[in-house]
Design a protein around this nucleic acid. Sequence first.
DNA 1: GCACAGC
DNA 2: GCTGTGCGAGTAACA
DNA 3: TGTTAC
Length: 732
Amino acid sequence: MARARRPLDDYRGKRDFGRTPEPAGGAGPSSAGATRFVVHRHEARNLHYDLRLEHEGALLSFAVPKGFSDRPADKRLAVRTEDHPLEYLTFAGRIPEGEYGAGAMTVWDEGTVRWLPDDDAAAALREGELKLLLDGRRLRGEWHLVRTKPDERHWLLFKSKDRYVGPGRDAARRVDLSAAPRAPLPKRVRRAEPAETVAPFTDPERLYELDLDGRRVLVETDLPPDGPATRGATAARIGGGPRGASSREASAARGASSREASAARGATGVRFRGLRGGRAALAPVVDALALLRARRALLDGVLVVQGPDDRPDRALLDEVLAGRASGDLLLYLFDVLHDDGLDLRPLPLRDRKAVLRDMLPEDPGPLLFLDHVVGAGEELARATAAAGLPGLVAKRADAPWRGGPTDDWSRVRVPSADATSRGSVRERLRLDADARPAPRVSNPDKLLWPEDGVTKQDLVDWYAGVADVLLPYLADRPVHMDRRPDGIHGKAFYQRHVTESLPDLLATVEIAGRDDPAPKPHFVCGDVASLLALANLASIDLHPWHSRVGSLESPDWAVIDLDPKGAPFAHVVRLAKDVGRLLRGIGLRPLLKTSGKTGLHVYVPLAEGYGYETVRMFCEAVARLVARSRPEIATVERSLAARGGRVYVDFGQNRRGATVVPPYVPRPVPGATVSAPLAWDELETDLTPADFTIRTMPDRLAERGDLFAPLLTDRQELEPALARLEEVVRDG
DNA sequence: GCACAGC
DNA sequence: GCTGTGCGAGTAACA
DNA sequence: TGTTAC
Ligand SMILES: [Mn+2]
Ligand SMILES: [Mn+2]
């Protein structure tokens, strides 16, 4: 997009400023000081991130659909979009439906940018290669944008190799640092201490850490922007070796200001506040710290040496630091107070620890993240005692950092164990904090039942909860979907065939139609994962066949559907009683459930081998018999007009490829009602199908169990019933 | 939900 | 990018 | 053959 003569014409042309809260842009604030950038998180039809760079009085904008990756190997598409006015630097708000870019726009990152190498943006744009040095709350270090040949608007965005490279592929997972004030790294802080020592206790608001026996240290770093050229630079230098040539070149390539800063840094850029000496022993720790994913950091931790029994040994530590003994130092880190110009002390501890975890290099060497257990204090205390470790520190997860003795921390004494129990320090530090393999739900907050506040996530949760009881009724059956991507009031579409774009974890079976002999793939839902995948497709209910793969021509049950379509439910109840009485009268044991909407379904589980035609004829006889005996409230007429307010006794679904919803599926009607199996003695006129909903069914299921279970076990012969049915027909 | 064409 | 659009079933009874 | 209902 070549810049127009009036650069914001494009921007203004797309927007109606009477409707959108976005700034029209006028006399933009003149650029003073550092060049700014902003990244908006834009929940438009498709979530994406908009990178906007201040340039010649406007914001040069790129949309990045897949967000930012810390790995240089991940190239992300960035599409050049129209320039935005400078006022957009601080814009956040909701663009109304119908406007350009409708959806929530939030500031995801902001900070300053320098265009490398010479801060010459115009030249870089001409060449189609931008190198940006970002100093934001989330995006740091050098990023690279390269224009693609095939499409001038398309660029590739990727991380340049520097200390900020990391394993993260997903921008969305980064910790939100918007609450951290910008401030210089504090010169002096009092170290935080537990105010009291207490017995083990359990508190879900606490993070429990091991209280390690070592030397508490506060680590301050002032590192160069690039990582060191090689690992082990400090160890080599202390050993008398020269500085690597490549490292010198990298240093020379940096700007003058960087060289000046480097003069002010200590030799290594790492200071251990309040720790004298031990330089040689600390060299591997310093080398590891040189790889931190931050230049300026203030970290809290404890230096430890493992004794012969693997437990921290304070006496040995002192000897090692004094150079009188050899041993490998470990630095356990448990807090971060400052991160590249951001004062993290106001943030909750759990966020600070997340930042710290993210800050450690991929190859941390002797640096360890002191992990925690959430809530389970007494349990961890027992494990700690068993490992022969001295105790725990319980810290309030929500507390900001406070120096000196603080009530936010409590030291927890654990009873000392006998010396025979042992355990390695590393082994005992198991992380449990956030391991949850949850399948991704797209649009989890989409209201599927808007009146009931039931979301797509709720639907998926419902299916996860009933999977055990529902899956047997789906096993091996082709299943159709009635998809409602826009909720129960939105446009629906029915889907029988697997198309290219659907999740490939779904099992399929090729089935030919009656006239169309070309087999088409149908869904088969055999496990929780595929059940949840169907729910994620906004398939509110499911529509399995009555027959299974391998015997597709042979239904496993007969079904009669009582459909009121406006008729009183009391009539449905009376007819269901009739159907039940008739079926029992000819020796069958029928099952009953609500349809989940306004009707009732009566099932008879069948022995193997009956064809659809036989079953349909049987149901037709039953339906006609019942309808004839109550002509004022029942009909077998298919035509809506001919029904005249009577209940439709539908036997026509006993057909290959036809479906009736199984028990335990929710229906796309207000109330989020569920198809609910009933005991026959529940069939009274005060029965209210609307009582069985996504919210009430779990309790009912727990109390009554699966009332439909006989469907799969109580399989019945039709011949005797057919014989007796003929008698009934003859005798009236 | 997604792919496509068009801007 | 962003928007708009189209696409996603099959059968059988009956007029 | 198109329409209607599931
Ligand atoms: Mn956008
Ligand atoms: Mn029905």
